[in-house]
Design a protein around this nucleic acid. Structure first.
Lengths: 235, 235
DNA sequence: GATTGCAGTATTGTTCAACGATCCAACAAT
DNA sequence: ATTGTTGGATCGTTGAACAATACTGCAATC
């Protein structure tokens, strides 16, 4: 190793472009379709038709299915096939218990977290406000998800981050179960801002209190919407 | 539905014996081997040899691999195969951050949890003490895992429970990375009992304080052991 | 009329053999 | 010592095949 090799140390970054398998690519597509609601909860995904449509073998497709069912976006029923997950009211309760477990302690620790993590929270709120100004409800929903992802991120654990992403993806499914009015996220935007301001002010207890209330309200609203739903639809 | 159908309502339970696929059975075997240390961290699992050994096709085996890599027990490297995960020092820190995020808030909420969940904590401690009396170190380790699983269980979320199980399984791998002396769990047993007693007394803050100290001590010990390890072994 | 029994059909579960793609170790060339 | 090349091993993916299971509809039964 000569002195001229120092160039290398100064290079951009360890290129994160890890090779991706075909199964992962198919899974990425399906994940998008599911989260965006193009594949409605409960529909069955036929192996034969999908493998023909996306030009992959059944084996490869099944591998993609496995990736997605580990994220709870698909459910696999023996000899019956895979279906887009259809969260129940109980799932909603469970999801919110999980979110409380993840988000609240993270917020309480916020004063020990590096500044840029708090800034990520603020950025998500700002993004949400911008989306609202343009009445882009889908983007607003995404920003709201990122807001909560950023909150959990304050715990600074990669594993917690990943778990949180799964929980939020599932939460998103919930909105599709009931034809969700886009304005669902709307009332929560100012709440997000308040939480962020409390974090910046390092008043973590205030932030936690706001978040507690937020979660309770949001959960209650979702549960109400579920109970109002036609139970027969839960085939 | 006639009146005589009431028998059905009185039947034992919804038999949870869901049909299990071949891939799941293989995954179960491998999981046991990994957690018990028969498959050391870092070793590569050859598709061809394993498929011959367990009389399943390569495709089915790959299905099992996917299941285990979602639990982070195996890592999949493109075109190189799957390997038993080999947690690093950074992983240990991450695991403990995750455990703090999960266990501490669960403990703080313990006064709102049903009694049987607290009893599950006590049962795990008792089991650990019994195992120690018999000098069954492996059983003692298992009991310790169940203790922490029970703590996280106080949050009453199925998703949190599953996440915690994964975190604990990985933690178990950590012990295999460094040829762990069986006495590793030993000093922690009295601690577990103190935490349980605090829970029974509904002194959740005391329990949380003890647990915080416990986790800090345990993490520090593991990190020290990691740093003392031959770095060359981390190929 | 409701339940049960029994086809036939469609779909999934699993296997197998094959081929291209990629990695890796060993060697040769500079 | 570094770089290019080669060959073997293993993975990624495919397509076809057969077995196992679930679903549908209809006939038989009470």
């Amino acid at each position: 190793m000569t002195a001229t090799d120092d160039h290398i140390d100064r290079l951009p970054a360890p290129a994160l472009t890890r090779p991706t398998s075909q199964a992962e690519r198919v899974a990425d597509m399906l994940r998008t379709f599911i989260i965006e609601g193009e594949l409605a909860p409960g529909v069955r995904l036929s192996e034969e038709r999908l493998s023909r449509k996306y030009q992959v073998s059944r084996n490869t497709l099944r591998e993609a299915f496995r990736l997605l069912s580990r994220e709870r976006l698909l459910v696999h029923r023996m000899h019956r096939g895979v279906f887009v997950a259809r969260p129940t009211g109980e799932d909603v309760r469970d999801l919110f218990r999980a979110r409380r477990a993840l988000e609240l302690p993270a917020v309480r620790e916020a004063d020990r977290a590096p500044r840029e993590l708090v800034e990520a929270v603020g950025a998500a709120v700002t993004e949400g406000e911008a989306a609202r100004a343009e009445e882009d409800w889908w983007r607003m929903g995404s920003a709201n998800m990122r807001f909560h992802e950023a909150l959990a991120g304050l715990a600074r654990s990669a594993r917690v981050d990943e778990f949180m992403r799964q929980v939020l993806a599932e939460t998103r499914l919930v909105f599709h179960v009931m034809a969700a009015p886009k304005e669902f996220h709307d009332p929560y935007l100012p709440w997000n801002r308040r939480i962020h301001l409390a974090l910046v002010a390092e008043d973590t207890e205030d932030a936690a209190a706001e978040l507690t209330e937020y979660l309770a309200t949001s959960e209650e609203q979702l549960i109400r919407a579920f109970d109002a739903m036609d139970p027969a639809a839960e085939t």
